[in-house]
Write a protein that binds this DNA or RNA. Structure first.
Lengths: 154, 154
DNA sequence: ATTAATGCAAACGGTTTGCACTACT
DNA sequence: AGTAGTGCAAACCGTTTGCATTAAT
């Protein structure tokens, strides 16, 4: 699938400050922390996760600030949220390349599903129902190959 | 009680009692209430929903009992749970015919996705990743045809 | 008589809120 | 100075748990 490498400077973590200010919003230490954490994120984390990671960087981090900032960043289109298998908010970073998630129920690993992998689904649903699928909210669970072999039933 | 006829006779709400007893479990008034509510359910409800509906039938209903019974019923394969767009537990009834859900972000309506509609997706993912999709946990969001026309953007 | 199931009430975990305070601009 | 953002603490909501009690078998 047309994957861009992820370590490639996501086209503007440094622009975040600017984009905030452009809206009259502010670039604070706490936001710097969160954005730093997000920049080092492979793609998907829960809100609670982010709180924890921020606390690792700055132990004075408070949940409310993190969640409020995530809201702001979502407004800017910098993060998006979906919902994980256990129902927690799950944020993913810069869904510039729209993608969904594939999660193994057993090992809890998560993979990304790119647009072309989901294309047939998207097309089928579009055709049958006139329904436009929001790929970035797509979250599929099941059992990965490794786990399928590892456990006959489970 | 059974004021309504089971118009589609879901092949065995009446067997539930038997199946419970077969496992040494008990058929209580509270379980009768919940099962009654489930029998009158179109397909998907949140846990909290079920608590509420049970309370409509029997105002003395307690959440704990409902949730505990749902667990038991899930063990029996009578209900399954997935997660809704807002992250709440969402139960659906007798997924004998395995299906997922399609939800419009705007009007919040929900439709079922049958196995054949999802077949191409399931096949593609199976082929590409060796991943077995659990269709009953599949929950897709987007924008339905009506809403897409109704609102140009947003 | 067993022992599964209940009701209560409190605890939980993640997220949200009100408010006075802090600090970016 | 002015107002966006913060921290705190408490509220929130759906769900889970411990425990003494009730009731199905």
């Amino acid at each position: 699938m047309g994957a861009r490498s992820m370590d490639e400077a996501p086209a503007g973590w440094d622009e975040v400050a600017t984009r905030l200010r452009a809206r009259g919003l502010r670039w604070t230490a706490q936001r710097r922390t969160l954005v730093g954490v997000l920049a080092g994120t492979s793609g998907h984390v829960t809100g609670a996760d982010l709180v924890e990671r921020c606390r690792a960087v700055d132990p004075t981090t408070t949940p409310s600030t993190v969640y409020r900032t995530l809201d702001v960043l979502e407004d800017l289109g910098i993060v998006r949220h979906a919902h994980g298998a256990d129902g927690r908010e799950e944020f993913h970073v810069r869904p510039a390349a729209d993608h969904g998630h594939l999660r193994c129920d057993r090992c809890l690993q998560v993979w990304e599903i790119g647009p072309d992998e989901a294309r047939s689904l998207v097309a089928a649903i579009e055709a049958a129902r006139g329904f436009t699928v929001d790929l970035s909210h797509l979250s599929i669970s099941g059992r990965c190959a490794a786990c399928r072999e590892a456990s006959p039933r489970g």
